[in-house]
Design a protein around this nucleic acid. Structure first.
Lengths: 191, 191
DNA sequence: GTGATTACTTAACCTAAGTCAATGGATGTA
DNA sequence: TACATCCATTGACTTAGGTTAAGTAATCAC
């Protein structure tokens, strides 16, 4: 299981024996059933996750509707925005499938970073690439029509459609379920 | 000038003498005239910035139009997405006003982080708060109408309207200049 | 297996953003 | 000063997503 994490980290740096040791020491792995709520609105977030298997959705409520913020799948990490802040979370985390995750917490993190500064450095680099990636997604979203966003999604994450309900994808794309239905129809008949 | 930076950093951590020293050693400050292009599409980005004074816009071209990604003003830092990657940038940085910035580069950064691990730790923490903030903006954008986005902008960054042309704000809001004009009119007559 | 709930689709209508074109004002320049 | 350029506004028209409502399909619980 921990191999998945090392595989992921090796994209960013050379994995030394020391890092391998640090990882083994510091990670705990847990499983959750489909439907489990890992974090609720108002809760204090004390955990971050790295998904080894399954799919987790973050969302929040607005105007009585669930707005999907993100779908997280294998090899993605989830650091709730309120993680480590002791402020109540304004979003939820829900397991859309049975999941296996590795879990971190702030104390453990600090301890590990103290012991292995290399890992903190790695975290910084990863955080910076996440910022770059996020900004790109945001910009792409801003400059696209809903139809383009949909086409882009099925191109970049084709698995999602088999894994999550369509109305959640609609809210992820910033549109209503009815609109997504029409967009799909429109594209079908075009071809 | 460097006080501005210390003031900014003090929001995240206690500023020790050591950090102060590190900052003094590692930062260079430069001025640029309004209209200066700090980074062009296709260029390799080798610098990051912290704005002491002025306004910088990042944008890129799509369908022959300039799409504004972000407006950066005092106390904001700019780390171009391609910074440190040796990949050509797909966006531009343009000074909308005369600016004064403090400049960093990857070599200097690494050196400084080696010397003052505390600073790398601080960078990580800041990077993580940036991620959280970005995600919040993105989500808010997704779940808002253009009119709501406009209202939110003049509420959260009222200075921008005095500083940058309206058509650039329009593209920043993901709409056409004509639409922004109409939204403003609509709101005026409502009141 | 049956009924209830939830999810997806379709249709009619409404609304607001996009498009195209014209105008007037501001700014900059020879 | 006169000319050119750029920018913001307005109007007429198009288009596509939102809204409401209804119907069908799929899923879940008992």
């Amino acid at each position: 299981m921990k191999n998945e994490i090392l595989k992921y980290l090796s994209k960013y740096t050379v994995i030394t024996k020391e890092i391998e040791k640090a990882i083994s020491e510091s990670l705990s792995i847990k499983s959750f059933k489909k439907g489990t709520i890992l974090l609720n609105e108002g809760d204090i977030s004390t955990e971050c996750y790295f998904i080894l298997n399954g799919c987790i959705r973050s969302y929040f409520l607005k105007d009585g509707e669930e707005k999907t913020i993100e779908f997280y799948t294998e090899e993605q990490s989830i650091v709730p925005p309120s993680y480590g802040t002791s402020k109540p979370s304004d979003s939820c985390l829900e397991c859309l499938e049975d999941v296996v995750v590795s879990i971190g917490n702030p104390e453990l993190e600090n301890e590990t970073f103290q012991k292995y500064p290399q890992l903190e450095s790695l975290s910084r680099v990863i955080a910076e690439t996440v910022i770059a990636r996020q900004q790109k997604s945001f910009t792409q979203f801003k400059t696209s029509t809903p139809e383009e966003r949909y086409l882009n999604l099925i191109k970049t994450r084709p698995d999602l459609y088999q894994r999550v309900p369509q109305h959640q994808i609609a809210s992820y794309l910033g549109i209503k379920p009815e609109s997504l239905s029409r967009i799909r129809k429109r594209i079908m008949t075009k071809k």
